[in-house]
């Protein structure tokens, strides 16, 4: 047998072994995963769909959620400070009145601004595009890490607010 042909058979043999072993490893892992998921209190349903971010926020008990009506009422009474977790481009094209644009990567640099607002007794309300996005959850988590209490998440997001016909602002924050 030539050296090249020997090497080819070596490689083919390794790949065949690898494939069989991978199947076995995956099978064992799936069985353990199923058993572990069945035993744990926060296990997922196998056939269900993954939870939406707001369901997760509610389920984890970490953050309060706020609906559109309460958010609008808070806006008119001036008791809320809105935090837009989307990109600056999305923010410029339209945002909730008086919102601060704080995507996850800018949280650290905006802490002082926010602390000023919350010291005035306003509740921080974080939002992103809508129910399917998780930016609000990410920003809320980071703010909580910086010691902000009582953060709420507007689950309907920008789309819900805009569709409801509530007032909006465009461009940079003044």
């Amino acid at each position: 047998m030539s050296l090249q042909s020997e090497r080819y058979h070596d490689l083919a043999g390794t790949l065949r072994t690898a494939f069989l072993q991978a199947l076995l490893l995956a099978l064992i892992a799936i069985l353990i995963a199923a058993a572990f998921n069945a035993c744990r209190p926060n296990g997922l349903k196998w056939l269900g769909q993954g939870p939406l971010p707001e369901e997760y926020a509610k389920g984890s008990g970490t953050f309060e959620t706020i609906n559109l009506e309460d958010a609008f009422s808070g806006y008119t009474q001036g008791t809320l400070v809105f935090i837009d977790a989307r990109s600056s481009t999305a923010f410029r094209s339209g945002h909730l009145p008086g919102a601060h644009n704080i995507p996850p990567e800018n949280v650290s640099s905006c802490i002082d601004t926010l602390r000023g607002a919350t010291l005035l007794g306003k509740t921080p309300v974080v939002y992103c595009d809508g129910p399917g996005c998780d930016l609000s959850l990410r920003v809320a988590s980071l703010l909580a890490e910086h010691g902000f209490p009582g953060i709420q998440i507007l689950t309907a997001g920008w789309e819900g607010w805009y569709d409801a016909g509530f007032p909006i602002e465009q461009g940079e924050r003044p």
């Binding site: 799936i30 995963a33 199923a34 296990g43 196998w46 056939l47």
Partner: peptide
Amino acid sequence: WMINPVAIALPWIEIF
């Protein structure tokens, strides 16, 4: 329908 099965099984496959 694939999201939860992947979320349950994939981490254990990674560990193994």
